[in-house]
Nucleic acid binder design. Structure first.
Length: 574
RNA sequence: CGGGCUGUGGCGCAGCUUGGCAGCGCGCCUGCUUUGGGAGCAGGAGGUCGUCGGUUCAAAUCCGACCAGCCCGACCA
């Protein structure tokens, strides 16, 4: 293509309101434009990148036996009511009515639709199956942000595996795991597979693929000594035991006028109520049931862990009046001692502790010398706290690090839930009728594009890996008004095409600086500079975008040299 | 949904405090010169100042409501 015919609206200045590197550079480089918050037009350059990612995904999905299909984006409410998610999805689902007043929604994912199709499979002989689609999903995000990283309308590859039993699902899950590793490697990304929570989808095993970036929205925990890696929502750690000393006897009432916080209590009684000696008592409403949640005073509750532990959909902190009605005191003076009428769930860091301080369920009073085993009725012990950097690795005792990541892919085992709901049953070898066992596997396509930019850019612009670059090489012609120079550029361009590479010919009658800056901004991996000065001695220049290194080449060698570099680079990324 | 901030030619911004011709830089169009890292000169096009209402002789500017967008938090397969 000739650059002069292309629509590549680069911006000279950084756009206002774009913080994340990928947002800023994709806008400046003319890859995307915002239509509304969370809705982006993908411009020709962006579309070329997207198409390459799309192709890589399809090749790897096909390699594990996946079959692409195309599903409706608009679904009748019936489908979602049947699985129970019409209510469960809440406000995040775009809903509308047709002219007859029938409820409809825009699909945010396609488990239900797939399970309906899976109903046509009736024998184990027809399994396993892997079906995938690459289509637009809609989610009414409360807060779209960071360009195409968090949007309301986006392309997602999602695949679904259908198996007759759990071991079949394990195989499909592992196949996807391998495929995802291959996909992200080919995209030039370092994506780490981490143990994750499966969230509201419901499922067992769950692995996320994360790319490190300050624009990410997830916290990832890794160990410096071993391969332990987990989403913060699932991460555990080893912390030093607290020595509580010998028992001090019965609990005692401790007057604490005006004290409502862990810190204030610790300052008032540093000898016996340091944060690690306190029990933090939180009150949640879990599916309508008031529940006490206990943690060590200096620990934070990680709500997702509570959700996962209890396996519930609806959970919220209790309101002050609900708390007062149930416990007779306000937040800041709460405790679980003597509470028998409400369920109590406690973090494992409290196991076996004694001589602790907690609220007395009476404003301005606490209880001291609390012995967890003796004085509390804990219905359930669980890992509930958010861990911090520097704590010990649960696998090897090494030091844990916590960093931000972008979730580019997520694979998890759904089990029988959707097949049961939608009636997708098969007969197994024994003739029993069983629900199909499903897995679900997603990749955000535009988000992957943005993650690549986050991962691979410098102060001049994007540095695309060859495998996803919109063009592989730009032939920059200086002095387009000089027939000899222009002809040389044209010749190089067609030689490159003949060698199977994807060149773009920068034939714009602009000053060199503008053309160099644009090429670097949009991140074409290689640039061949053709100018009268070099041509006088039969030379052109080859510049590599990554390190900006430049070498002189004989005009005749340029195209084959670049073709070979690209081939090598694609090989490395395969 | 809570907190902070912003809406003025395509992009980036000033003007608003103290009401009085709608400006600057870049980009765009025409011509000439120039051409190896964002050229020069000359001429030109382009704006319901987010929307609606109010105050006023007069509103980009003051007041009110609303809308949109950005950032933080909450939320989020």
């Amino acid at each position: 293509m000739r650059w002069s015919n292309l629509f590549i609206p680069t911006l000279r200045e950084d756009p206002a309101h774009a913080e994340a590197a990928s947002h800023r550079l994709l806008l400046r480089g003319g890859f995307v434009r915002q239509l509304a918050a969370g809705h982006y037009s993908i411009l020709p350059l962006g579309q070329r990148v997207r198409a390459k990612i799309d192709r890589i995904i399809r090749e790897e999905m096909d390699a594990i036996g996946g079959q692409q299909l195309h599903l409706p984006a608009l679904h009748p409410a019936e489908v979602w009511k049947k699985s129970g998610r019409w209510e469960a999805m809440g406000e995040e689902m775009f809903r509308l009515q047709d002219r007859k007043g029938m409820d409809q929604c825009l699909g945010m994912t396609h488990e239900e639709v797939i399970a309906i199709l899976a109903g046509e499979v009736s024998s184990y002989r027809d399994l396993p199956q892997i079906w995938y689609q690459i289509q637009t999903k809609f989610r009414d995000e409360p807060r779209p942000k960071s360009g195409v990283l968090r949007v309301r309308e986006f392309t997602m590859k999602d695949s679904y595996s259908l198996d007759v039993d759990g071991s079949g699902l394990d195989v499909a899950f592992d196949l996807h795991h391998q495929a995802y590793v291959a996909i992200f490697h080919r995209c030039g990304l370092q994506a780490l597979d981490v143990v994750a929570s499966s969230g509201a989808m419901g499922g067992s095993e769950s692995v996320e693929f994360m790319v490190a970036s300050p624009a990410g929205e997830d916290w990832i925990v890794t160990c410096d000594g071993c391969d332990y890696r987990a989403n913060l929502e699932r991460a555990e750690s080893v912390i030093p035991q607290v020595d509580d000393g010998p028992s001090l006897g019965e609990t005692e009432l401790l007057p604490t006028p005006g004290i409502r916080t862990i810190r204030a209590l610790a300052e008032a009684h540093p000898d016996r109520a340091g944060p690690r000696r306190q029990i933090k008592t939180l009150v949640y409403v879990v599916d309508g049931q008031l529940t006490l949640v206990l943690l060590r005073g200096d620990h934070e509750l990680l709500e997702q862990k509570l959700v996962d532990t209890l396996g519930v959909a609806n959970l919220r902190p209790a309101a002050p009046d609900e708390i007062r009605a149930a416990l007779g005191a306000d937040p800041g003076s709460l405790g679980a001692v003597g509470v028998e009428h409400l369920p109590v769930i406690a973090d494992r860091a409290l196991v076996g502790r004694r001589n602790l301080v907690t609220g007395a369920n009476r404003n301005d009073w606490h209880l001291s010398s609390v012995d967890v085993e003796r004085d509390l009725t804990v219905g359930q012990w669980a890992d509930l706290r958010g861990i911090s950097a520097g704590e010990g690795c649960p696998q090897c005792g090494g030091v844990l690090d916590v960093w931000r990541g972008i979730e580019v892919g997520h694979i998890f085992k759904l089990g029988e839930r959707y097949a049961r709901a939608m009636g997708a049953m098969v007969q197994n070898e024994q003739g029993d009728i069983k629900p199909i066992v499903m897995g679900s596997y997603g990749i955000g396509v535009e988000r992957t594009m943005a993650a690549i930019v986050e991962f691979s850019h410098d102060d001049r612009g994007i540095v695309w890996p060859v495998s996803v670059a919109p063009y592989e090489v730009v032939v920059t012609v200086l002095r387009t008004d000089d027939p000899g120079t222009m002809a040389a550029g044209e010749r190089l361009y067609s030689e490159l095409k003949d060698l199977g590479v994807e060149p773009v010919l920068d034939d714009r009658p602009l000053r060199p600086g503008v053309k160099f800056t644009d090429a670097e901004l949009i991140g074409i991996p290689y640039r061949i500079t053709v100018g009268p000065r070099g041509l006088a001695s039969g030379k052109v220049e080859l510049t590599t975008r990554g390190d900006l290194s430049t070498v002189e080449l004989a005009m005749d060698d340029a195209a084959p040299t670049v073709a070979e570099l690209i081939r090598t680079e694609l090989e490395r990324l395969s």
